[in-house]
Nucleic acid binder design. Structure first.
Lengths: 109, 109
DNA sequence: CTTACTATCTTGTATTACAAGATATAGTTG
DNA sequence: CAACTATATCTTGTAATACAAGATAGTAAG
């Protein structure tokens, strides 16, 4: 994944980081992202994304009973996912410094 | 434009910022972005993007003779473009803090 | 005239973010 | 029990995006 590709893939990285903290299911993830200050991601974004990541073997899932509602699909990182997360962090830092150096002249606005 | 939409539109904001510094043409812009640490953006990314921004009236363009090669199309910001830039900066700061707070637990990796 | 460099634009493709809505389970209330 | 509410996942379809690849064109040098 190149730096430019990541422009589209920032959510992916954030989701990997959140899953890394502790295993989590989609619905809970959506709430958590909102807490972190993101505009709420709809399920139409999150579920396909999680399924894509599972297909890429970045995460695995297990079903567990819910107190209310259908079974929850808990996701956790594979070692490939952990590796991807570390690479995402590097790329994010790079992107951040690139964008910030572009914006340097605009700071006081 | 929502926070999530901007995930895809970070380049747009960076380009607005660069054009704001001084008027610039596409080819020069591509080189500049590379200097700033971005993976080189191909012309297939930059030219359609500039044309889109002109269509949205964020930038205007004027043709000027080149020392070598065809005429250069110099772009500069409209007041709408300046406004959009200021909004981009706000959204970028927000995104930055959101992502960084998600990554807080991962810092030392 | 061919090569090389500068410069812009077009076409086509894969991916992405997302809205909208379908589906399913369990608890609550009338 | 029927209706409603909340929880939870998945599907479908769409618009926008990033990009590779290549077409086009002007100028200068050999």
């Amino acid at each position: 994944m190149s730096t430019t590709q990541m422009l589209k893939g920032i959510i992916d990285g954030c989701i990997l980081a959140i899953i890394h903290e502790k295993e989590i299911y989609g619905y809970e993830l959506a709430e958590k992202l909102e807490q972190y200050g993101f505009d709420s991601f709809s399920e139409g974004t999150i579920y396909p994304l999680l399924m894509r990541m599972q297909k890429e073997e970045l995460v695995t899932s297990t079903l567990k009973k819910s107190t209310a509602g259908p079974k929850r699909k808990y996701y956790s990182l594979t070692s490939k996912g952990e590796q991807e997360l570390r690479q995402f962090i590097k790329r994010w830092k790079l992107l951040q410094s690139s964008v910030n150096s572009v914006l340097k002249g605009e700071e006081n606005e």
